[in-house]
Design a protein around this nucleic acid. Structure first.
Lengths: 112, 112
DNA sequence: GCCTATACCTAATTTTATTAGGTATAGGCA
DNA sequence: TGCCTATACCTAATAAAATTAGGTATAGGC
C-alpha cells in the first residue's frame, strides 16, 4: 500500500518541465526535487525515471554530459533544440488532459 | 496520430464518478457520455472500458443487471455498497494526484 | 565494520491502454 | 434486396509504462 500518487503518463512531462526550468539536472536530483516540491505527494522512482530518460535521449529530446563530483559520477541531462520545442507542446498537452479529467471528476456527470 | 487525450489510470475513477452521479449506466452509454461531456477531449474506447468494468465487478465494486431494449441487450452497471465507499476514496485520490501534477507542471520548478 | 546517502542502472513482472478486429439487431436509403 | 450506420456487447495480441526487486559503487558518520 503506497500512498504516494503518480499519474501514469505524466513522468515525461515532469522531466521536460524540470529541465525547462533548471537548464540541467541529473537523475537522482530529479527524484529528490519532485518529492520535495510536491510535499511527498508525487514520487518518481528511479526504476521508472532512468528508462524514461534514456528513451528521451534516444528520441533526441535530451542530451547528456557526465561529470565526476566528489568521487561519484553524475550524468547531467539537458534539453536539445528539438527538446525545447517538444517540451512546450508536451507540457501544454498534459496540462490540458489533466484539466479535462479534473472537470469530469468534479462536475455532476448527469447524462443528458 | 490521435489528438484525443487520456490520462492513464483515470479510467476507473471516471467510471465510478459516472455511476455515482447517474445511479446506473451501460458501457456504450458511458463512452458516449464522456465524449460529449468533455467536448471530445476525453475518449474512452470500448476496448479499454469493458475489461475495466469486468475487473470492477470482480472486485465487487460494481454489479450488473441485464435488460432487453429494442431487441438489443443492455448490461447496466451500478455501484455496490463497497463500490460506493471506494468510489469516494478513489475519486478524491485521483483528484489530489491530478492537482499535484498540475502544480508541478505549472509552477517554476526551481530546485532549492 | 556497518549503515546511510549519493548515484548510476537493469530484469522480470504487472497493469493498463491501443490496435484491430468479431458478433448481432434495427433502421434508413437507394 | 443490399449496404451503411448506429447501437451494444465483447476479445486477442500487442505495446507502453510503471512497479517490484533487486545490483553496483563511493563517501562519510558513528
Amino acid at each position: 500500500m503506497d500512498n504516494t500518487q503518480f499519474i501514469k503518463g505524466s513522468l515525461t512531462a515532469i522531466v521536460l518541465k524540470l529541465l525547462e526550468d533548471n537548464g540541467r539536472m541529473y537523475g537522482y536530483e530529479m527524484t529528490k526535487a519532485v518529492k520535495e516540491m510536491s510535499g511527498d505527494k508525487v514520487n518518481i522512482t528511479e526504476a521508472a525515471l532512468y528508462p524514461a530518460l534514456h528513451k528521451l535521449v534516444e528520441e533526441d529530446l535530451l542530451e547528456t554530459t557526465t561529470e565526476q563530483v566528489a568521487g561519484r559520477m553524475r550524468k547531467y541531462y539537458s534539453l536539445t533544440k528539438k527538446g525545447k520545442k517538444e517540451s512546450v507542446i508536451q507540457i501544454n498537452s498534459m496540462l490540458e488532459a489533466l484539466s479535462s479529467v479534473q472537470l469530469l471528476l468534479n462536475k455532476k456527470l448527469s447524462n443528458g
